[in-house]
Write a protein that binds this DNA or RNA. Structure first.
Lengths: 207, 207
DNA sequence: TAAATAACGACCGACCGACGGTCAATAAAC
DNA sequence: GTTTATTGACCGTCGGTCGGTCGTTATTTA
């Protein structure tokens, strides 16, 4: 077959992008290396030239995903429209501008299939490591402004993000609609308690 | 080969028990049906006569695991030595008498292998559904006694259990020792904030 | 300077072993 | 005799391997 060589970093990125698309639409487990080969018109050996295993590839995909999210949120916080918001407003922006949510929706279509548990878990793990500090910074700001109060901003952020994500994401567990609704209703006051925030300040979470 | 027939419910339990042992010591992914067959001296078809797939078997194992835990905790709460403890003391008993922890330790030996992510996730999911209500009941008791304060006892329990478990269990993500230590130190005050509990009342968590 | 050659590494794809799962036959139980 | 628990040979699929090929670039040769 005709062979096209590309610069390694280009090819690597190509593979990651294609894999990311497949993993998100078809689920990780149900995506075969054969499909990835077909998508890219590439031989199997080429993929394994760049990634030592399917799971290694998953790791790269997740890193790509989370890093993108990180860049967006960082940029969001630095943007002029955010510069002089209160900490509470900033958190609202961070949460509601959930850029990753779109991609998640694709997943939710293939609901109830457990083939993406590994990917979800990995993603949440990396997400916490990389993005919790951003939330923590804003929380700290809030403490300075007197709206929040906590001795452990980072752990607080990790704790809330992990809890909410696990209890909300049907990719982890096939939660029922009623369970999800019940939790959504409770989250505002839970978060407010956690941060010692004014009553009602997080009611936007339930929307 | 000579064949020994057993009562279906006996056989079923046998398979679950053996699978449980293997899944916990060897990890789910790395446990093959062949190994399970060898352990039980049973043909493959027999297993598939009782369980439609490997994952179906996993589900049964997890249910077995969590139900056992549930029974123990329920019994613990009903026991005479717990009857007239304060809510705070009861929670301490619930948490420190973590019967499942032993089994987890086995897992921690095989550290950093992601082959059990699915099992861990499933387990936490079912655990929350079945055991959060027990914690919630005690929390409610604490509210009545005036040591706690929350409008959503159940969601509060789910939230804390999910968060702590995910951030603590290296079966989900290969957290570093420093990360784990850092979080353990923070948990008491996080939980106290969540429940509006007196300062220091949950310091036993960090031990 | 231009052509031949050597070295490198990106790329290929036939092949493999392992694994989950199937099913027709069969032995035990009732 | 009927039902049902059990067997194990067999299958398809999938992740992964590996010896080898071909395009590219640096180096030598004419």
């Amino acid at each position: 077959m005709a062979r096209t060589t590309k610069k390694p970093d280009i090819r690597r990125k190509e593979i990651i992008q294609a894999a990311r698309g497949l993993f998100q639409t078809k689920e990780y487990d149900r995506t075969t290396m054969q499909e990835l080969m077909d998508t890219l018109n590439i031989a199997k050996g080429t993929i394994y030239h760049y990634f030592s295993s399917k799971e290694d590839l998953l790791e790269a995909v997740v890193e790509d995903l989370v890093d993108e999210e990180l860049r967006r949120k960082e940029q969001l916080m630095k943007s002029s429209q955010c510069r002089n918001l209160t900490a509470l407003e900033k958190i609202r922006v961070l949460v509601t501008t959930d850029t990753m949510a779109e991609e998640h929706e694709q997943l939710l279509v293939n609901l109830h299939h457990p083939g993406n548990t590994l990917m979800h878990t990995r993603q949440l793990g990396r997400y916490l490591i990389k993005l919790a500090p951003i939330f923590a910074a804003v929380i700290e700001e809030g403490c300075d402004q007197g709206v929040f109060k906590t001795d452990h901003p980072l752990e607080c952020a990790e704790f809330m993000l992990a809890g909410i994500q696990f209890l909300t994401d049907v990719g982890f567990y096939p939660w029922s609609e009623t369970e999800l609704a019940r939790r959504m209703k409770a989250f505002p006051s839970l978060v407010e308690a956690q941060l010692h925030a004014p009553k009602g300040s997080f009611s936007f979470l339930a929307e």
